[in-house]
């Protein structure tokens, strides 16, 4: 118990004193998760809308695939991305291995099914009269899309929150694709894993606290937004 308390105290010191190594991992996490979430939302919301809005042959099959991908283990995604971007892989020449971009690609694969599936569910649960109402008021297809997305905003916020939570806390992709390189691709989660294995509980706890604060801040911001809209 004592070493945990000591760790907590030292964690506060590291954060207050602005320990460079700790803050490097924090900035790497913020940067990579921002990129992956931006791309996932930009791609996932329109795709989820189409999946929820349209009726087409094979829709159930597509939905099953997307739902299955919700349970993808992060180490498996890391493995697949590694295979593609390693020097022997088809995208090896792009030089993405052990970069934050490589991690972001993996995290997109993790977040995209979540955003697609939850957006599709939100759009499907919209009142069927909404589409009829918008068409009857003379809306164009783009205006119908934009208004439907706004009507489904609560569901989309939940999708964004859930996906962000997964991306922030994953360790498998960051470790396998990023390689946990100090000052470069070390993220909060990979740093916690490494520091703990080295017996450096203070740094691990400090980073864990930061992760908790980040998750709490994002959730607080989104729930405030949810109340306002």
């Amino acid at each position: 118990m004592e070493f945990i308390l000591e760790g907590l105290v030292k964690a506060c010191q590291l954060l207050v004193q602005g320990d460079r190594e700790t803050y490097s991992a924090i900035f790497a996490t913020v940067k990579v998760s921002s990129i992956s979430m931006t791309v996932s939302l930009l791609l996932g919301i329109p795709l989820g809308y189409l999946l929820g809005y349209l009726s087409f042959p094979g829709k159930k099959g597509v939905r099953t695939v997307v739902d299955t991908m919700l349970a993808l283990p992060t180490v498996f995604i890391g493995l697949v991305v590694y295979a593609f971007i390693s020097s022997r892989g088809p995208l090896g020449e792009a030089g993405l291995l052990f970069t934050l971009t490589g991690i972001a690609i993996g995290q997109c694969i993790l977040a995209l099914p979540i955003v697609i599936a939850l957006t599709a569910t939100s759009v499907e649960s919209l009142d069927r009269v909404l589409r009829l109402t918008l068409k009857s008021l003379g809306a164009s297809p783009l205006q119908i899309f934009m208004t439907s997305i706004w009507e489904a905003r609560m569901g989309l916020l939940i999708a964004a929150t859930t996906a962000t939570g997964r991306v922030l806390t994953e360790v498998g992709i960051s470790m396998m694709v990023g390689g946990n390189i100090k000052w470069h691709t070390r993220t909060i989660t990979t740093a916690i894993a490494m520091e703990t294995s080295k017996g450096q509980f203070a740094t691990g706890i400090a980073l864990g606290l930061v992760l908790l604060i980040m998750a709490f801040t994002i959730n607080l911001a989104l729930s405030t937004l949810r109340r306002r809209v």
Partner: peptide, 22 residues
């Protein structure tokens, strides 16, 4: 036809089940 420019802004419909945007 549906989404015809011009005409879609001149014709409108009030369905039996009223839907108001949130």
């Amino acid at each position: 036809t549906p989404f015809a420019k011009g005409a879609r802004h001149l014709l409108t419909f009030l369905p039996q089940e009223t839907y108001l945007l949130k």
